[in-house]
Computed example of a mutant assay.
Amino acid sequence: MRSAQPRKVRELNSHYIEQHETQMEQRSKSKKGLARRLSALGLFVILSIAFTAITLHSQNSVLNEKLEKKQILENELARLQILERDLNDEIINLNNLEYISEIARRDYFLSRPGEIIFKVTSSSSD
């Protein structure tokens, strides 16, 4: 049996090994640089998407508020147009002498000469 002697292996310092090691170092640096660039690009894309989503959400909520306000104002406009039509009808009626005389008889109990006005109350015991 052989005794346990340490083996002496001599390392070859050849040009090929040095060149291979420098290539491996460059590849490692290149991979790290690529990873950094891709990480920065990914972060930029994520931030851009987040900013766009936040902007769209805020614009959508503002749009919904404005649509609700528009609906309320359209309802108010319709109500005011009906009121305007009624008031215009009232103006036309107030320029009519027969309508004025009817109101004077009904509300102020005025009568024509020789006319007697009776106020009749309606009973709700039907």
Rank of each mutant, 00 (worst) to 15 (best):
R2G: 11
R2Q: 05
A4W: 07
A4T: 03
Q5P: 03
P6T: 10
P6S: 12
V9P: 04
L12K: 08
L12N: 02
S14L: 09
H15K: 11
H15I: 14
H15D: 12
Y16N: 13
Y16M: 05
E18P: 06
Q19A: 08
H20D: 14
H20N: 14
E21L: 10
T22M: 14
T22K: 12
T22C: 06
Q23L: 09
Q23N: 11
R27A: 12
S28Q: 14
S28Y: 14
K29Q: 11
K31S: 12
K32A: 05
G33D: 12
G33V: 04
A35I: 07
A40K: 10
A40W: 03
F44N: 09
I46N: 06
I49C: 03
I49F: 01
A50M: 04
F51L: 14
F51Y: 08
T55K: 04
H57L: 15
L67C: 13
E68K: 11
K70A: 13
K70E: 04
K70P: 02
Q71C: 12
I72W: 03
L73F: 02
E76V: 06
E76Y: 08
L77E: 11
L77M: 11
R79F: 08
Q81I: 13
L87C: 06
N88T: 07
I91C: 00
I91H: 01
N93T: 01
L97E: 11
S101F: 13
E102H: 10
I103T: 02
A104P: 02
R105H: 00
D107Q: 07
Y108G: 00
Y108L: 02
F109Q: 12
L110F: 01
G114Q: 00
E115N: 00
I116D: 00
K119Y: 07
S122R: 05
S122E: 10
S122W: 07
S124I: 09
S125K: 12
D126C: 06
